[in-house]
């Protein structure tokens, strides 16, 4: 079997990065974000990137790292409210944004990865989101056509992975990662724990190995919390 295992993020991205790539990034808020890969993209200095990601990180974390260095040309996202650098760059005209409803974004990525060029949805009908897009009536109800998304490199973060590329996600850190893994020519995964082939229960694998081309263990992880909300005992 071809080797998919790399020693770190820099090695896993070797030979893949260039300007103007479209990156498909897993994560929701700061959860399940491929932090080590994003840091390696930053260190590589490539620019003009289009990033498909539900959020844009916060200042100093997640895709916030690539916004601060001006490496991102365009974001395709559903919500970017947490990032102050984003607001500044956008208002200065240095960053493009295409807002997608969150479910439309998830489905565009899923469709792109499944070889489906377009689909119809009720979401956004009668709003700005549908402007300039084809609509069609099915069973008396209007739907808008949305296109699948397929990028150059998918950057995903999983909990456990095996050396063949099977992935298991942990709790709400799954989010956009499984779809992103399918929707690019090349998928690189960082995992908290890398195990031997055969050590993951086949019934528990979320992303099958076929999608993942390169994998590395990014441990240790210092997991960040955006809104620590607690109750009193």
């Amino acid at each position: 079997m071809a080797n998919k295992v790399y020693k770190d993020a820099k090695a896993a991205l070797d030979g893949l990065l260039r300007d103007d790539l479209m990156l498909m990034c897993g994560g929701f808020g700061l959860v399940g974000v491929p932090d080590k890969l994003i840091a390696a993209v930053r260190d590589s200095g490539v620019k003009g990137l289009t990033c498909v990601s539900n959020n844009a990180g916060i200042d100093g974390a997640g895709l916030g790292l690539l916004l601060e260095t001006g490496q991102v040309k365009k974001m395709i996202s559903s919500y970017v409210g947490e990032n102050k650098t984003f607001a500044k760059l956008y208002l200065e005209g240095k960053l493009e944004i295409e807002f997608n409803p969150q479910g439309t974004l998830a489905e565009r990525v899923r469709a792109g990865g499944a070889g489906i060029p377009a689909f119809y949805t009720k979401t956004g009908v009668g709003t700005q989101v549908a402007e300039g897009k084809e609509t069609k009536t099915f069973d008396g109800e209007e739907y808008v056509m949305e296109r699948g998304l397929f990028g150059d490199i998918a950057l995903v973060k999983a909990w456990k992975g095996d050396k063949s590329g099977n992935l298991v996600f942990r709790k709400a850190a799954r989010n956009f990662n499984p779809m992103m893994a399918t929707a690019a020519k090349m998928c690189v995964a960082e995992v908290e724990e890398l195990v031997e082939v055969g050590q993951l229960d086949p019934d528990h694998i979320h992303t099958p190995a076929v999608y993942v081309k390169r994998i590395f263990c990014g441990a240790p992880y210092d997991k960040k919390i955006e809104q620590r909300t607690i109750r009193k005992a």
């Binding site: 808020g29 997991k223 919390i225």
Partner: peptide
Amino acid sequence: GPFPLDNQVDPDIINAGKQTV
């Protein structure tokens, strides 16, 4: 479920408002 107790916080368990739950 409800917000966690201080010693129950798990960074991977959040709601859509990015709050720990």
